[in-house]
Design a protein around this nucleic acid. Structure first.
Lengths: 199, 199
DNA sequence: CCTATACTGGGCCGACCGGTCAATAAACGG
DNA sequence: CCGTTTATTGACCGGTCGGCCCAGTATAGG
């Protein structure tokens, strides 16, 4: 039956996501995508249908990756739930100040979220998934006796989703690692740790 | 001595800012700006130099407005500092879920901050100014006996800058007012209120 | 080996981008 | 009332965009 493809869709989507993440949707040209993926224009067009479709694929892929990465970090049983959240936030502060951008998710939301229903939907889904992971970690901390069981785990989870988005925004302007770390450490104080004397 | 202008620069900058806020920098065409401002292309070019310069003017103007608005809200002496912060965050949650976008500042940072030094600089300046206002309000709360004087006012201020940016991101994806309000209320718990029994 | 299949990459297209030019209109000083 | 100066207007420019056609080619099955 015909000639097989020389590429893996997942690789192409990943490369395209990097290009979109670097220049935004509007700022990325088909030329950029050809360069980033190594495919020809026509191959991109055949396989994905066009710039917009490829973008949505990349966005969903990046979102799924971000969710999986958070799940791995907050699900690692070698530390207590509270330690995992703390470690996660500090690591994020460092990553963001290294110029590492996993922020296609956030960038797309801000650039297109209020105008493109598909992007808004992907963003809401991503927020929801992230929130569930934070929430489970908070609940684990409550069950383990680290946090007050009376606390609203969902509200805390939403809070962390918002805060980490804000840290990404600050990071993209070049706010220093010191300041991002301070923000991370400050945010932890919303958690009602049991057995602590309030400062 | 030549022919006088038919417009005020401040009006044009304001209208242009709305256009940029709606479609982003890359997504706004000169045509859009002509429509939004009512001026001709050449008039825009004469008065501002081009799309990019006009954008920077609009960005700086919007940033200054945002700083002034926060200053007014947190400097209003008819309530205690703590009540002002609380009211400010709740109002922000409502404003964002109304689709009201004062978010040119945040949008520009995310879209261009990691690639355009002028935008990054404007963003950093804006963050700094906002932080100073939050900081002063926290200090006032400490002086007034509402908050623990030992708390790091600067860290708390940076935290609120990050959190409010994150709320704007969530708002542009359409996160509900309920959830945004919950985030606002949760964030207040970072504040070391005196005389409170920790939950 | 031959044919059917469909992926590949160069190149072309109409549309539109941001920016500019040439001519006209309006206010002021002489 | 005329010349100078500046603003405005609409036509226009080269460049680039996203999209697509076409000729060439590699592969699988018979």
């Amino acid at each position: 039956m015909g000639r097989p493809r020389k590429f893996l869709e997942t690789d192409v989507v990943h490369s395209a996501g990097k290009a979109f993440s670097d220049h935004g949707y509007g700022g990325t040209t088909l030329e950029d995508l050809v360069g980033a993926t190594g495919l020809g224009k026509q191959s991109l067009y055949n396989a994905f249908g066009g710039k917009r479709e490829l973008f949505l694929r990349a966005l969903n892929s990046d979102t799924a990756d971000a969710v999986a990465a958070l799940d791995a970090e907050l699900g690692d049983e070698s530390a207590t739930p509270l330690e995992r959240i703390r470690g996660h936030l500090i690591k994020l502060a460092i990553t963001l100040s290294d110029g590492d951008k996993g922020i296609l998710f956030t960038k797309a939301t801000v650039e297109l979220g209020d105008r493109d229903p598909d992007v808004a939907q992907a963003a809401l889904q991503g927020f929801h998934d992230l929130e569930q992971i934070y929430r489970q970690c908070v609940i684990d901390a409550q069950d383990g006796g680290e946090l007050d069981p009376a606390a609203d785990a969902s509200a805390l989870a939403s809070f962390f989703v918002a805060l980490t988005r804000g840290m990404e925004v600050l990071g993209s302007a070049g706010v220093s690692r010191t300041e991002l770390t301070a923000i991370a450490l400050t945010s932890i104080k919303v958690l009602p740790v049991l057995g602590d004397v309030p400062a």
